[in-house]
Amino acid sequence: MTESREQRASQIPRDAANWATQTDAVRLSAVPTGARNLNVEGKQAVGPLQGFGPMWQKTYRVRLQGSDATPKDVIAAWKENFPKFWPPGNTFYAPLTGIAPGEAALINSSLPGGMPLSTGVMVLYADDESFTLMTTQGHPFSGWVTFSATVESEGGMTCTVAQAQVLMRANDPLYAVGMRFGGHKQEDRIWEWTLASVAKHFGVEAQVDTNCQCVDRRPQWRRAGNIWYNAGIRSGMYVMTTPVRFVARPFSRPRTGA
């Protein structure tokens, strides 16, 4: 028998602990040693609806044929080794408390052309068989990346399939141009590498299947102002002004506690 809406509302939803709680701004619980902490603290987490460019849904999948890993095994290993599965040149500083709802992580990377990029993500959702990262304002894209694992059958054989699905819009007009000229390819490389690394972790050498679909071609012009938060521009300015900060350091007043 179906429960009434009132009955359902009175129960604690079984996924309540899996979601981040509502917050106005992203907060880092700690900054890992060596991480460049820019463009994350105090910024909002943004989804595919808040971006500027066309909306894309990109799905990357790898079949773990021959491995007896369950979806729970895959997600547990993925959460634990997330930074290790990333391609060289991109550093993901996982939250010290692990990938858990509401936690934020720093990303130090570079844009096509070599411009440094400091940005981050917030863990929107996490359970035993999936987790979702939500980007912060200023990230090249505004969106979610959901990592999941399921058991699938093909030709009478079952195997676990690991998947990363990105639902995104380029965050601002500059990034939208960048996505056309190398940004999408760079992003595909990151997730294809990641999926191949997950497969290797379970002893499987397999081809990653990539499927990209444009869900909405029209840009959201009212979001053009997102460029104010562009983490590429801000990170570049930060790097360029490093000598000035170095010279000024002896003259700056020491920070006092609140």
């Binding site: 939803p13 849904q57 929107l124 959702y125 979610w144 999941s148 071609r217 029209r218």
Partner: peptide
């Protein structure tokens, strides 16, 4: 509906994209 996970929310977002288009 008594359960929606993050993949489910993403499905709804992609419907929103299709509706907008």
């Amino acid at each position: 509906v008594d359960y929606i996970n993050s993949t489910g929310i993403a499905l709804i977002v992609s419907l929103l994209g299709r509706a907008r288009a």
